[in-house]
């Protein structure tokens, strides 16, 4: 099929291409696919969100954004991998509240400093946590919830972020319930539906279908602004806990040291993606509230730094030591 001459042609052609690519790269970033490291398993809520955004991004970058799942150790494995990756803008990390703001204070194995080792690219979403009780429960509003909370209440949580939100609320509202940990909120659903635990704190997305069917009743959301899909549910702030605002967030970060112009290109692409009505709707459908603040890269870094400070202080105040 190939004769010698044909083979030589191919080699020469390939060499020309190989030398041509770097020349192109100087002019335009990105000139090859961008790798988005997601530190969780495929198919989970975080992964689904990352894929929707990556899919939309590809349009604005004119290069595919490839999701690479590197799950393990509550997101620590993938985050450490991103820290070590080349700081050329082609390696970015899906950074969430748990991995960037909580894990370094919770686990000694999370040997990264989110403020030093990463630089913010864009803030994707902010969603509150919601406290729900079984539909058949006597608890109908915050007042009866607070009464019950001091009477042997059990509160399910599906991860460290939700647990800390619950602890923060308990401290500020002077409530006293027993936290029951589950590996994920999905695992807790059957126990709350059957009433074996009295209440649950979770992201809204995991309970919305059950709230709609009446099987669960929302009591409060933890953000200072009300949550669109649960517009009637009071916020902790409106109940008198001034300024109480605990939100889970999704962001994209890059390893520290990426040239600023590349960060800006990525930031612009993310913010355009988030402004896209079709992408917004898809995110809302999976229960993620897209951020409409359109933060630039520096503001994203500042936001992440403020969250790192807030949570490391809260974790220290709660007397939790890194393990």
């Amino acid at each position: 099929m190939f004769n010698k001459r044909g083979f030589l042609k191919m080699v020469v052609g390939a060499m020309t291409l190989a030398t041509a690519t770097p020349a192109l790269a100087q002019d335009s970033f990105p000139s090859k696919p961008v790798r988005l490291i997601v530190p969780y398993s495929p198919g989970g809520g975080t992964d689904v969100t990352a894929r929707i955004v990556a899919d939309g991004m590809s349009k604005y970058l004119s290069q595919p954004v490839v999701v690479e799942n590197r799950p393990g150790a509550s997101g620590t494995v993938g985050t450490l991998l991103a820290k070590e990756a080349d700081a050329d803008g082609y390696n970015i990390l899906f950074g969430i509240q748990a991995t960037l703001a909580l894990n370094p204070s919770l686990f000694t194995s999370a040997t990264y400093d989110s403020k030093e080792d990463f630089t913010g690219v864009a803030l994707l979403s902010e969603s509150p946590y919601v406290i729900t009780v079984p539909g058949a429960s006597d608890i109908t509003d915050y007042e009866s919830f607070a009464d019950a909370a001091n009477d042997n209440m059990t509160m399910a949580n599906g991860g460290s972020a939700a647990l800390l939100a619950a602890r923060l609320l308990a401290r500020q509202a002077d409530l006293n319930f027993t936290n029951i940990p589950y590996p994920g909120s999905g695992d807790a659903i059957s126990d709350i539906l059957a009433g074996r635990v009295n209440a649950m704190i979770s992201s809204p997305v995991s309970v919305l279908p059950h709230v709609e069917s009446g099987a669960l009743r929302p009591i409060l959301v933890t953000s200072s602004e009300s949550y669109p899909a649960l517009a009637d549910t009071p916020t902790a702030d409106s109940l008198g806990f001034d300024g109480f605002n605990v939100v889970g967030w999704y962001s994209v970060v890059a390893p520290a040291g990426v040239p600023q112009d590349r960060i800006d290109i990525l930031n612009a692409a993310f913010n355009e993606t988030l402004a896209d009505e079709a992408v917004r709707q898809k995110l809302i459908d999976v229960g993620v509230t897209p951020s409409s603040r359109g933060l630039d890269a520096a503001a994203t870094s500042a936001f992440i730094a403020s969250e790192v400070d807030l949570w490391s202080k809260e974790i220290a105040d709660a007397g939790i030591e890194a393990k």
Partner: peptide
């Protein structure tokens, strides 16, 4: 969980 994710991406929330 992955199959659930595939449904969620299409905006279908598995549930009652």
């Amino acid at each position: 969980a992955i199959i659930l994710g595939a449904l969620m991406i299409h905006g279908i929330a598995p549930g009652p």
